[in-house]
Amino acid sequence: MVTPHERVKRVTVAAEVEETPLMGGRVRLLQPVDGYRAGMDAALLAAAVSARSGETVLEAGCGAGAVLCQTGVRRPGVRMLGVERDPDMAALAAANIRLNALDGEVLTADVADGFAALDRPRADWAVSNPPFFDNPAALRAPGPGKRAAWMADDGLAAWTDFLLTGVRDGGSILMIHRADRLADLLALLGRKAGSFRVLPVHPYTDRPAKRVLIKAVRLGKAPLVLLPPLVLHEEGAKHTAHADAILRGEAALDVG
């Protein structure tokens, strides 16, 4: 019998693959040894998805499937739909879904082509951890293995458009991004969504937020809510107790 790990090695000829445990070993993730590696952002995004059994979670730019797999293990009975333009990474994500015995599929497609090109029903949740930069002049060129994860070639609007189109009316959109892009995200999502709930993520209690988690509802009309912040680190410790519990899969993020 061919294992998912062996199957992945056959298709990802451009990169060496290794298995990484996530959520205290509850999730097994195959990912390239070199290049972009799943970390705290993926863990926070998955921890904030409160999808119910039978619902579908669409992820734009799923990479190797870290968010998909962590979400699926956290939320049994949820169906995952990943979209990834890199064929090798899409193959990894599909293998990781199988490796973790989850329900879902991964499509090789470009967010810039729009959700309609997928020919799939709209999802209950649409989530993403988009590339953080869309201006090559603002960032020293990353390594080839990391460029796709860091640079949004078609701009942030392509990602928000994809999420807005891919989620049903009344469905939830969830994104994690740089805190300094909060105004842009609110403006872009606000064309078809509302009922915003914003969670600032601070590296330390005395430092500005570096990330924001934004939840919106397609066609929502409720006032914006700024939630109490999440602090990731404390002096003398790698993570706060709450952040560590999230990484181990023992705690979720309540963003409403």
Rank of each mutant, 00 (worst) to 15 (best):
T3C: 07
P4T: 12
H5T: 06
E6H: 13
E6F: 11
K9H: 13
A14P: 01
E18K: 12
E19K: 09
P21I: 05
P21Y: 08
G24S: 11
G24H: 12
G24R: 13
G25W: 10
G25S: 12
V27D: 13
Q31E: 13
P32F: 09
V33A: 12
D34W: 00
D34I: 00
R37W: 01
G39L: 07
M40G: 11
A42V: 03
A43N: 09
A46L: 09
S50I: 04
R52F: 01
R52S: 11
G54Q: 10
T56A: 14
V57F: 10
E59Q: 12
G61E: 07
A66D: 04
L68S: 11
L68T: 08
T71Y: 06
T71E: 13
R75T: 05
G77N: 07
M80R: 12
L81F: 12
L81D: 07
V83I: 13
E84Y: 11
R85L: 11
P87G: 04
D88L: 02
D88C: 04
D88F: 00
M89F: 12
A90N: 05
A93S: 10
A95V: 00
L99V: 00
N100M: 00
A101Y: 00
L102N: 05
G104F: 00
L107V: 15
D110S: 15
V111M: 08
V111Y: 05
D113K: 15
G114L: 11
G114M: 09
F115E: 04
A116K: 08
A117R: 15
R122C: 13
D124K: 04
V127K: 02
N129E: 05
N129G: 02
P130D: 02
P130F: 04
D134E: 10
A137K: 01
A137N: 00
A138D: 00
L139H: 00
L139T: 01
R140L: 00
P142N: 00
P144D: 00
P144I: 00
A148P: 04
A149D: 02
A149L: 02
W150E: 03
D153A: 08
G155H: 07
A158M: 10
L164D: 09
V167A: 14
R168W: 08
R168H: 09
D169E: 13
G170T: 05
G170E: 03
S172R: 15
I173R: 06
I173D: 01
I176T: 06
I176E: 05
I176A: 05
I176R: 04
H177Q: 14
A179P: 07
D180V: 07
L182K: 08
L186E: 10
G190Q: 10
R191N: 14
K192Q: 15
A193V: 06
S195M: 01
H202M: 15
P203N: 15
R207E: 15
P208Q: 14
P208V: 14
V212P: 03
K215E: 05
A216F: 04
A216P: 03
V217N: 03
V217E: 08
V217G: 03
L219H: 10
K221W: 02
K221H: 06
P223I: 03
P223A: 02
L224Q: 02
L227A: 12
L227P: 04
P228L: 04
L232I: 14
E234G: 14
A237L: 12
K238T: 10
H239S: 07
D244C: 08
A245I: 05
A245R: 09
G249Q: 10
E250T: 11
A251P: 06
D254P: 06
D254K: 11
